[in-house]
């Protein structure tokens, strides 16, 4: 029983790492745009299908598939930014959100048009047996997920706190008008952040589909949902919060799946989100200034 708890926590942390990456990308976009991008997950799904298509038609290595997933997500992200967010920068937040919903449908339709059988196999990262530590086991994918989450969070922290680009991003998050007055090309920074967020999302997407070893068009909704959930748990606009939120969500799901079965897993996660939002509407970790307007 005790080992089960630890084992579930470990599995949860691994899955939570990919949620954390999804939430980090989501939070970056929300932070600079103050807009919810519903097409975030579908753009990732698009990248995943690009890689699947290449996998079915050519011989491609694992690294190539990862790169194609990320590149596809970035391309789709750029498309979303140009169509949904660049035109509505000063305008309506609702218009931008609805437009991002429309693109979500577009991505799903495009993908099912080209690849009509919905569910496709996706090659696993590693076929060997899991690592064993005493009575605990850890799969290779789990280790890679954890390592990626740590590396990306740390790298992002370094970039944001210590580079010229990071200074611009923080300035735009803090006050877009003041950032413009300081001479920062705000539309350009917004596009760059969007592409950065999409590439982090694409990486998360690759890790997730290669763990599940299959891809469906549902990945889009799934990614948006998990990213949004983890972001809300962590606190809107806070990057450390997004990481923590992803881990909390992952651990929670792992335990509820163990105790209540897979059907109840998502139900419990959503119940918890509602409960949390009722008690702490700005998430567990308050962000600096983001929540004031959110």
């Amino acid at each position: 029983m005790f080992f089960d708890l630890i084992q579930n926590t470990l599995d949860g942390l691994a899955m939570g790492s990919s949620y954390a990456l999804l939430a980090v990308g989501f939070t970056l976009i929300f932070g600079v745009l103050r807009r919810v991008n519903l097409s975030y997950g579908p753009a990732i799904m698009f990248g995943g299908y690009c890689a699947t298509w290449v996998h079915l038609n050519f011989q491609a290595g694992l690294l190539a598939l990862a790169i194609i997933t990320i590149a596809g997500a970035v391309l789709a992200g750029a498309y979303v930014e140009r169509l949904c967010f660049a035109p509505h920068r000063q305008g309506s937040a609702i218009a931008a959100m609805v437009a991002s919903f429309a693109l979500w449908m577009q991505f799903e339709e495009a993908v099912t048009l080209v690849m009509p059988s919905h569910v496709y196999d996706f090659p696993a990262m590693y076929d060997g047996p899991p690592f064993e530590f005493g009575s605990l086991t850890l799969r290779m994918e789990a280790l890679v997920m954890l390592a990626c989450a740590v590396a990306i969070s740390y790298g992002l922290h370094r970039v944001l706190s210590g580079s010229r680009f990071g200074l611009a991003v923080r300035a735009v998050i803090d006050s877009p008008v003041a950032a413009q007055l300081a001479g920062i090309d705000v539309p350009r920074v917004l596009l760059q952040v969007f592409l950065l967020a999409s590439s982090i999302g694409g990486l998360a997407g690759y890790l997730i589909v290669s763990t599940h070893t299959q891809i469906t068009p549902m990945l889009g909704m799934w990614s948006t949902l998990k990213g949004l959930l983890a972001m809300m748990i962590g606190g809107l606009g806070s990057l450390p919060g997004a990481v923590a939120g992803g881990l909390v969500l992952g651990v929670l799901e792992a335990h509820s799946q163990w105790f209540l079965g897979p059907q109840s897993r998502d139900l419990l996660a959503f119940l918890l989100l509602f409960g949390l939002l009722a008690v702490r509407p700005y998430g567990l970790w308050r962000a600096s200034s983001a929540e004031a307007e959110a």
Partner: peptide, 9 residues
């Protein structure tokens, strides 16, 4: 600018 608009955070 009017009202200073520093970067508060």
């Amino acid at each position: 600018p009017e009202n200073r608009l520093v970067f508060p955070a």
